[in-house]
Amino acid sequence: MKPFEPVIVAFCCHYCAYTAADMAGSQRRCYPPNVRIVRVPCSGKVDTIHILKAFEKGADGIYVAGCLDGDCHFKNGNIRASRRVASVKGLLDEIGIGGERLEMVKISAGMGDRFADIAEQMTEKIRKLGPNPIHAARTAA
């Protein structure tokens, strides 16, 4: 059997994290292909429902990537995003998906390497956690 390859959605803010992802590319910094990026203007724009729907659609892991503390282009969107992520983690525990499948990370525009490192860590972590139980149940059904 093929080893489990998780699908991970990364919501990236335009100004920092998405730029960092581009930067990783321009530095030809390799990271796992499991990570799929969705661009948002600010990490504060990532709604609880976006996260839930992504899990519902079968994502195995999700992370919201915003700017470093104090560097948010929109002043405090990243701080809001962190708080929201913390609360959605609780809800995921309740649902039985597991809050540990969701993370908030902070990256500056120039940190291509950090973007790649996080992609690797997240992939490794989700690989260990195994498939999203919702998705697994659905495919079994």
Partner: peptide, 8 residues
């Protein structure tokens, strides 16, 4: 400014 915080 278009950050979308209000929307979320």
């Amino acid at each position: 400014h278009g950050c979308g915080t209000c929307a979320s």
